[in-house]
Design a binder for these strands. Structure first.
Lengths: 195, 195
DNA sequence: TCAGACATGTAATAAGTTACATGATTAG
DNA sequence: CTAATCATGTAACTTATTACATGTCTGA
């Protein structure tokens, strides 16, 4: 499930140009599968080269010609195949959590800002997803609703956790920063669990 | 906050060799910042080259010499700096959610398997994190506990959501697959929200 | 006897991000 | 007048992943 396959999937719903697809990535997929022009345009070129989509150009003035891509039968088969055979990964890489692991090494004020910023991001994401969800109706594909609901629900959980545990973490960070008086306590503890 | 900085952070807790760091990544960081030997060893070499860590070799028989890395003062400064100046990203790339977006295009049986597999992964992660959490004591850094708690809490939320909405999604997928009789309904709906 | 822990690394590859490059029209 | 929308793409760069390469010892 790379950007290419995802573009193909979107084109299986209806024809679109790269710009349209980018908008779709910005709304629906933003929170779990971000992609920019730098991935989308090469993906479309590649799909066309493989015969999975066909492209027709609409001349325009003042702008580059609009290149509208439409999926082919081969493309449909390919996508259906991808849906059957891919075992989907769920990859998270959180610098936020990585930094928080070292919370006792940070200035409490800075730590506080970090937590607030993340909370803000989460709240913004929730609002964003809720807005998408409200645009759905009975005709909206069930998957789209499920996915939006999932995103909002998990983001709420994350925000709740931070709100709940924020003070305790800050408290302990304050303790260790006063104890160490800004200097690092070199605990000479070995990393890992070697007996 | 790349693998390099994270290695440096771990070495600021205590000296270790690449193998030790990998174990740490496998336990604590696995769920939000995975890294393999292919990232860790080059990272250590790089840190050494920059003077952020020093390396001493313990000769061993039958195995490669153990290369124990210890952080330098410059390294400590560098890490403290990184903690202050990095604005942490939180990146998610979920093929799982991307595929579910197209749930109505999948065989209901396959969809069901996908959901179950993800649930299994989540449950395994929860067990794993809980085990890590139980190993913590009063001396454990507050950050480590916060991060573990976060992971478990959010994973539980994700599992709950899937369990709650699983049947509804499957139901709707069954409807659309009978309706379309295996064939794709070409909805000629354009992607996006163009009026 | 066989899997897993111990211990190092390199090289090829894949994949996506960022910055660059261009420019008209339109709504506030 | 200024920001946003429309519309295309390329090229360099960064980063991590995967597979390769080697070999011993220990516990089940």
């Amino acid at each position: 499930m790379d950007v290419k396959t995802l573009c193909l999937g979107l084109l299986s719903i209806g024809e679109a140009c790269g710009y349209d697809l980018k908008k779709e990535f910005e709304s629906t997929f933003k929170h779990f599968y971000p992609a920019g022009y730098g991935s989308i345009y090469p993906a479309l070129a590649d799909l066309a080269e493989n015969g999975f989509v066909r492209c027709r150009e609409i001349p325009q003035e003042g702008k580059p010609d609009r290149k509208i891509y439409r999926i082919t039968d081969a493309g449909r088969r390919h996508f259906r195949n991808a849906l059957c055979n891919t075992s989907p990964q769920h990859k998270l890489r959180s610098e936020f959590l990585a930094m928080l692991y070292f919370a006792d090494r940070m200035e409490p004020e800075h730590l506080s800002v970090l937590l607030d910023e993340r909370l803000e991001e989460l709240r913004a994401a929730i609002v964003d997803i809720d807005r998408i969800e409200q645009r759905t109706d009975a005709n909206t594909a069930a998957g789209a609703r499920f996915v939006a609901g999932f995103g909002a629900f998990v983001a709420r959980a994350a925000a709740d956790y931070i709100e709940t545990n924020r003070e305790a973490l800050l408290e302990q960070a304050r303790e260790s920063s006063t104890g160490a008086a800004g200097k690092q306590t070199d605990r000479t503890v070995t990393v890992g669990t070697r007996a």
